[in-house]
């Protein structure tokens, strides 16, 4: 019988702990497949965050480091400076990257640190039980914004891709989504491009992936994906925000 699908060997056999309907699993698989397809997986060094993906070191089948909350870009900087020829990546959520780790991501980006950041944005703190994140939408109800996010009281969501794209250090920044198959394919292409440019030494690369959180959004997996389309994407428009190779080969 012909093999039509095979799990990438860049993922371990450990079952994911993610909630049903959460898209972390899809994003993990895309990253792992890209690492394998580019032939850089076995020698890669990944950095896991604090948040839902805290156990990423159990899933990615390569050398891994577990960073303190928000510090993954600094840890990745240390590793990449020691091993400039290896693929070094971080996998971070929005609380980790856009709030407590805002300084680390901005400076890794502006230094043009030759790493790839996979930034998973689901507009909420998932692991700790659904608190308001820096990316939470105006009016969105969370456990620490029970009346909906009041922008007069606690400000506006951070648009990380837009913000970092104003810097000179990044080589490539794209925002993608995984709420349907065409977008999953686009997301994989973006991740592949990011790692490719990293290995070419072009600079800092980041792919922001809009993700769902059915558990903490209080929705079914299907409703959650619909909410991604109806509410998340208007607030976080998809697209390439920075590409220093654009207008060249393409």
């Amino acid at each position: 019988m012909a093999v039509v699908f095979k799990k990438t060997n860049m993922l371990t056999d450990k079952p994911f702990h993610y909630c049903p309907g959460c898209t972390h699993g899809i994003i993990h698989r895309l990253v792992a497949e890209v690492l394998e397809e580019l032939g850089i997986g076995e020698t890669a060094i990944g950095v896991a965050p604090v948040g839902c993906a805290v156990f990423a070191y159990d899933y990615f089948n390569c050398d891994m480091m577990e960073a303190a909350h928000g510090r993954a870009p600094a840890v990745a900087t240390g590793a990449k400076r020691v091993h400039p020829d290896k693929a070094v990546f971080t996998y971070q959520g929005d609380g980790d990257l856009a709030s407590i780790g805002a300084a680390e991501i901005v400076h890794a980006a502006t230094r043009g640190e030759k790493i790839t950041v996979i930034f998973v944005n689901n507009a909420i703190y998932g692991m700790t039980g659904g608190q308001m994140a820096p990316t939470t939408l105006p009016g969105q109800v969370t456990t620490t914004s029970p009346y909906g996010r009041d922008t007069n009281h606690c400000g506006f969501p951070v648009h990380v891709s837009e913000m970092l794209s104003t810097l000179n250090g990044p080589a490539y920044i794209e925002r993608v989504s995984v709420h349907d198959v065409p977008n999953i394919k686009k997301a994989k292409a973006a991740i592949k491009k990011a790692f490719t440019l990293q290995m070419e030494g072009k600079g800092f690369t980041m792919v922001e992936v809009i993700s769902s959180c059915p558990t903490n959004w209080g929705k079914t997996p299907k409703e959650a994906l619909e909410w991604v389309k109806s509410d998340m994407l208007p607030a976080y428009p998809l697209g390439v925000y920075k590409d220093i190779t654009a207008g060249g080969d393409e």
Partner: peptide, 26 residues
Amino acid sequence: GCFLQSESEVAAINMVYGAGGAGARV
């Protein structure tokens, strides 16, 4: 070798973690 001025003390020690974890004398 590599000298890098970090954006903060917090970042510096985490860069040390990354480089030390990657096997270097740091």
